[in-house]
């Protein structure tokens, strides 16, 4: 068997899983199980949020290692489920390595994301219903929906420009709060704070926080602490952005 090929397949699988937002233990487990299925006695995957190291000793006594650097990434549950399924299938069937490689490629092709308009609609709906959820009126909800649309637009644009996470959430929250105050001033919305809170829900670090807890439970303290710090900083930058916009709005319109 070509062990360097096996190493690449295992690292590819781990990389795809981590990139779609899987927990650390899930990535490590997937790599380890795959290598064991292919007859490696003591596989040693080591994963932290921005790096994957896969290492093992082949039956001929040769040590092999591959390191992958992970760029910052979002959460893509569909991709996560597909690669997780693929990992389990590979362990069950243990196909030849070329076949495994081909299947990885195939899953990569199959992964789809929602189109941009659908995504914008989703942002609109999220903020609209959260404004209602927090007790806003129908007009507040509409205003929050508009803020949500702006958040979706700006987030996508900034992600394309590789802006960092904190700047992104700060700018988005500032823009949406400013917009909320403007809409209240124009008379569309009635309660500016409910509009702002509804729109904020699209930015609060709920996902990172829950993921951090799951990492801590699994005993991956490095990943857990990094993500908790990430969640706290995101929360602070959302608050800062909103605060900045509110003081501006008070300066201009006194709302």
């Amino acid at each position: 068997m070509d062990y360097s090929e096996l190493l690449t397949v295992a690292a590819d699988l781990g990389y795809a899983l981590l990139r779609s937002g899987a927990e650390i233990y899930r990535v490590e487990e997937a790599i380890e199980r795959l290598l064991r299925a292919y007859g490696i006695a003591q596989p040693a995957p080591f994963v932290i949020p921005n790096c994957i190291i896969v290492s093992f000793v082949t039956p001929h006594g040769e040590a092999m290692t591959q390191v992958r650097r992970m760029p910052s990434h979002g959460t893509d549950i569909d991709q996560l489920e597909r690669y997780y399924d693929l990992g389990r299938r590979l362990c069950r069937e243990v196909p030849p390595l070329e076949e495994a490689h081909r299947q990885l490629e195939e899953v990569r092709r199959q992964c789809r994301t929602y189109s941009f308009p659908v995504l914008l609609c989703a942002y609109f709906t999220v903020t609209l219903f959260f404004a209602l959820f927090f007790g806003g009126t129908a007009r507040d909800a509409l205003a929050a929906g508009i803020c949500g649309l702006t958040i979706g637009l700006v987030l996508t644009l900034m992600t394309r420009l590789h802006a960092n996470l904190f700047f992104k959430s700060m700018l988005c929250s500032a823009l949406s709060a400013l917009l909320a105050c403007t809409l209240t001033w124009l008379g569309l919305a009635q309660h500016s704070e409910l509009v702002i809170i509804g729109a904020l829900m699209a930015l609060v670090p709920g996902i990172i926080f829950t993921n951090a807890i799951r990492d801590v439970i699994a005993g991956d303290m490095v990943a857990g602490l990094t993500k908790i710090a990430d969640a706290l900083l995101t929360g602070v930058s959302v608050a800062l952005g909103t605060g900045f916009a509110l003081s501006l709005a008070r300066l201009f319109w006194g709302v």
């Binding site: 549950i77 659908v118 989703a122 709906t125 999220v126 219903f129 959260f130 209602l132 699209a202």
Partner: peptide, 17 residues
């Protein structure tokens, strides 16, 4: 109901199908 709808839309943002 609002929580239901908002969570459904969130699922779309995180690419759940």
């Amino acid at each position: 109901l609002f929580a239901f709808a908002a969570s459904g839309a969130f699922a779309v943002i995180y690419n759940i199908r």
